[in-house]
Design a protein around this nucleic acid. Sequence first.
DNA 1: CTGAAAGCGCTTACAG
DNA 2: CTGAAAGCGCTTACAG
Lengths: 343, 343
Amino acid sequence: MGVSLKDVALRAGVSVKTVSNVVNAYPHVTPETRARVQRAIDELGYRPNLTARHLRKGRTGIIALAVPELGNPYFAEVAGAVIDAAALHEQIVLLDHTAGLREKEALVSQGFRAHLIDGLILSPIQLEAEDLLARTGGPPMVLLGEREYDAPYDHIAIDNVAAARAAVRHLLDLGRRHIAFLGARQESARQPAHLRLRGWRQEITASGGVARDALVAATEGYDRRDGAVAMAALLDRGERLDAVFAYNDVVALGAMRALSERGLRVPQDVAVVGFDDVEEGRYAAVSLTTVAPDKHEIARLAVDCLLERIAAGSRQAAPPPRRIRPGHRLVVRESTAGAGRRF
Amino acid sequence: MGVSLKDVALRAGVSVKTVSNVVNAYPHVTPETRARVQRAIDELGYRPNLTARHLRKGRTGIIALAVPELGNPYFAEVAGAVIDAAALHEQIVLLDHTAGLREKEALVSQGFRAHLIDGLILSPIQLEAEDLLARTGGPPMVLLGEREYDAPYDHIAIDNVAAARAAVRHLLDLGRRHIAFLGARQESARQPAHLRLRGWRQEITASGGVARDALVAATEGYDRRDGAVAMAALLDRGERLDAVFAYNDVVALGAMRALSERGLRVPQDVAVVGFDDVEEGRYAAVSLTTVAPDKHEIARLAVDCLLERIAAGSRQAAPPPRRIRPGHRLVVRESTAGAGRRF
DNA sequence: CTGAAAGCGCTTACAG
DNA sequence: CTGAAAGCGCTTACAG
């Protein structure tokens, strides 16, 4: 059905090689030949068949991005940034979501769609190091996010401990002394929020305070409902608290909702800090103070890194696995300072 | 580098055809042969090369989804639902965003990545009918969303006029008589929010009221900031109003933020209704009443419809373009009723 | 500067 | 039930 190189060659009266040369902007073609071929291309409405090209070249120009949940605006925003970053390199993004399920994450990391994709950017939540070690073959992979592994893969993540410490520092500077952490998983052993929790602990301890486990609230997942439920549970337990540092923005937003249902004011009664800087937090009734990772830098680094790995795939010297730290900053808004900036 | 059918065939001592038969679960293979081939596959770690299969079959198993903006949670949620619906049919989703730009929408509709995708689901905002008519060739396409066209494409959209009328009806039933519409584009000629605006107008008129143009607030785009800016402008003009019907939830949320900055209470002073039922609206400080389209049904219908078109592509009788109406309902929450349900 | 030919890895009539 | 062979549409050494 489609028009092939051969059809164009026939029409232009040249070989397919010459048409291919024109299509691929190969420099050494006489202007006359080029013009003749171009005319044939236009007349026939020829479009290169990417599948065939890919089969031949062994690369597809497609990279996969697997995030836990598109319903979490942080991942939606990152996905958008990755699509844009990839487009700069004429790469297309195949999007997958894992629901934060270990099996799904493992499946994806195992090269679920190998041969279809040149590489994979994975943002794991539950994946364990052993899953990664079990990985054999499969295309190049770059990891994103807080989880860290002793496995030979590039990892792009802001300094989560430092960022968490800065957030807690900010609350301490405000005079808050009873700072809860919201968003630890139930099972203490496998703790995705490990680094942020550690930052919370370290900063409180460094300030001479006591990081009380009773102020660490477990959640099942990391969405708004989890935040609301955990916050309510903490309040029901009668814990005394004057601040909350949440694992991420949506958990923080859910918590704020629970606070207001209890008649507690933010920030007067309880100051709240989130993590992610999603658009939504800026327009909340009380705008949300948050740790803002540079999402565009994260996306750019992830794509660049992955493409580098893909290019190196054929050659000998691949660089050793890297840990790359994009920038981040604390954005102070109303949820910690009545007079903070609004947006 | 990879292991091919031929390698497996060599190892198993059969022809590639036989291996292919086993891989594709062709029934007429003797158990012994099958077992032998399977063993060779396992030992070699063979994985079919999808690119080659696609080249041969003329289908790639990839469908593209183009939405305006992943930063808008409605589209992120729909994208997630489409990915899930596609996975049910073993189809993979390539995601693109158009930023709601006409050129980008036109580019995508023109079969930007033809040959790479079997079909396209497009959610246009600015695209005009002439762009669609200019479309020649390209893979099957299904349209999503409020815009309607006189062009031969399947279109999946809830009844926007009826849904808008129900929302306005709800406000009227509450006794509100000065209902603003938020989210019309500046340029009156090309009006993406056409149907919802029409619903607003019809219902007010039907109730014996007057649909005043002064209560229609223009926005540049359709995000939170646009909602906040438009709401502020309306209030600055001194318009008397006691309710707002917004083009979508994020516009409504932005408007609520602007209202609270002015010291106006929702719903006591101004009742607010949105459109989309994004997760975020349920957890807003004042939870948002909204029109809830059935996103999963939308996704399912879009994928089914597209796959049907793809399958029919080769055959003669393709069904005529259809207009399909998924379900929707009005979800009443705190922004219109203090005693409404919270989530 | 251009052409003829091989081959990427698969599926599929066509034989047997 | 299985095999030998062609071909999907492209790129790329290799000649000339």
